[in-house]
Amino acid sequence: MDAITLLLERRSCSALTAPAPEGEALEAVLKAAFRVPDFRQLRPYEFILAAGDGLDRLGALLEEAAKQSGKSTEIVNRAYRMPHRAPLVIVVAARHRPNALVSRFEQQLTAGCAVMSMQLAAVAQGFGGIWRSGWPMFDRGLHTALGLEEEDQIVGFLYLGTPLQPPEKPLSIVESKDFTRWL
């Protein structure tokens, strides 16, 4: 698949199974993150990978975070299973690097770009993925459990694996003119 086709036809895929990227394929996914815009080369991110038993450990952290933050019984009961929707989950955290020229927000944007770049690298290699967010992204107890600092921020959970079926095509074509204007 050429780059323009990849960019124009990329779709999230939530129905994922094994295998997930591993070995050289996973290394390519991770290296794609290092090519995103990163003013001053601060590398303001960390990737926490969970596969196999790691999915159980991540699920237990999510379950405990849900309990500690007073989530509903339904959310607490679902939390443990959340990471098991894919064979590989990459928690992407923006790790704040104090810098007079690069704001925390700009560093978070860099980490967000890393998520998208990794998903594109996975899709380019025949895998599928989905960038998930939700309450865990903002739960400070989960941040602490993952060893993140107060000024750090989870920017997403990248679920990767092999699509159970081809991703659906977009229902409608978005016209760029509907979202742009010239000065």
Rank of each mutant, 00 (worst) to 15 (best):
P21T: 02
S176D: 08
R140K: 14
A50D: 06
R78M: 12
V76E: 03
L160R: 01
P19E: 07
H84I: 07
S69G: 06
F105A: 14
Q68L: 10
G147Q: 09
I154F: 14
A111P: 06
L61I: 00
F39K: 11
W182A: 06
G126W: 12
I173F: 12
V102I: 15
L49W: 01
A25L: 11
R11A: 03
A51S: 11
L58P: 02
S69E: 15
L62C: 02
R78N: 10
V91F: 04
A20K: 02
A114S: 11
G52Q: 10
L26G: 11
A3F: 03
M82T: 10
S14T: 01
E24Q: 11
L183M: 03
S14A: 06
G161N: 08
P19H: 09
P167D: 06
K67C: 14
A28H: 11
L26I: 11
Q68K: 05
S69P: 01
A121S: 13
T144W: 09
H84A: 12
T180I: 00
L142R: 11
Q165E: 05
G156A: 08
R104E: 15
A50N: 06
R57D: 13
A121D: 10
M82D: 10
A28K: 14
A121H: 07
L61E: 02
G161L: 09
P83Q: 12
A65L: 09
R140Y: 07
A86C: 00
D2N: 03
L148M: 14
D152R: 13
P98Q: 13
V92A: 09
P163G: 08
S103Y: 11
R43P: 00
R11E: 00
E27L: 15
